[in-house]
Design a protein around this nucleic acid. Structure first.
Lengths: 125, 125
DNA sequence: CTTGAACTACGAAAGTATTCGTATATATTT
DNA sequence: AAATATATACGAATACTTTCGTAGTTCAAG
């Protein structure tokens, strides 16, 4: 599994959401959050393509990029890593931290409840 | 809030657990997991002291180091960061990922529900 | 008070990630 | 087909982190 760097993850998040996009579009999206030069984004996406994180197809004079790495697998892997390094491998340690010290909105609690309901149904059925 | 680097976090975890320790002890602990030179550990701890992550007192010819940064605050901060960068700011997104790809026992679900109950009581009270 | 073991200080190299300038290529417009 | 706009390719600079060698310090034992 190839772990993306922070910058690469930003780009992956954009491509996972939009399915595919040109460098221009990705760069515009990035610049909604922070300033970054066009060629910087281009270079990063080229490196990601070499690494096998992305692939691309030619369209007119530009390239259209799309993610090869699986969203769920990648995020799961990143999560495992922080559980390992920050919480000594303990998933419940992470949960305690999350619930014990962080404000979680009512909406999110509702969402989490619904999710747990679904899981329990699965377990019982 | 000063975010520790990965290497710094390893050292913090050791000091949070033991309260305080010399470079020697920290380095020995690190070497249970991976090989790292004594002066590497020393240098890192010196940098951490400059940054205000650690402080130390002289004892004999060596220094005894201890963490200045709060464990819970630091972990909470790291967690916030991954929630932001990886899950678009959605805590429930993280939980779904966690529950979706890992086996979570019925006991843990019950525990989490109890947590949520407690939080809601707090919110409403 | 000299020797040796353990420790600190610090510069600099090595590794990794990010950034961007500049040259070149491609398509479109006039 | 020349000029313009938009792309790509790529080298190299910058930044950040980690690594360790070497020189010098401190303390204790002989």
């Amino acid at each position: 599994m190839i772990a993306p760097t922070p910058s690469e993850l930003e780009i992956l998040n954009i491509l996972w959401k939009s399915g595919e996009a040109t460098t221009q579009i990705v760069n515009d999206q990035l610049n909604l959050t922070r300033p970054v030069g066009y060629t910087t984004t281009l270079k990063t996406m080229q490196l990601m393509t070499e690494k096998g994180l992305l692939d691309r197809r030619k369209e007119g004079k530009s390239h259209v990029y799309f993610a090869l790495s699986d969203e769920s697998k990648t995020k799961s892997h990143l999560l495992d890593k922080i559980i390992q390094t920050t919480f000594g491998g303990s998933t419940s340690g992470l949960l305690m931290q999350l619930f014990g010290n962080k404000a979680v909105s009512q909406d999110e609690i509702v969402q989490i409840r619904a999710f747990l309901d679904g899981m329990e149904d699965k377990n019982h059925g």
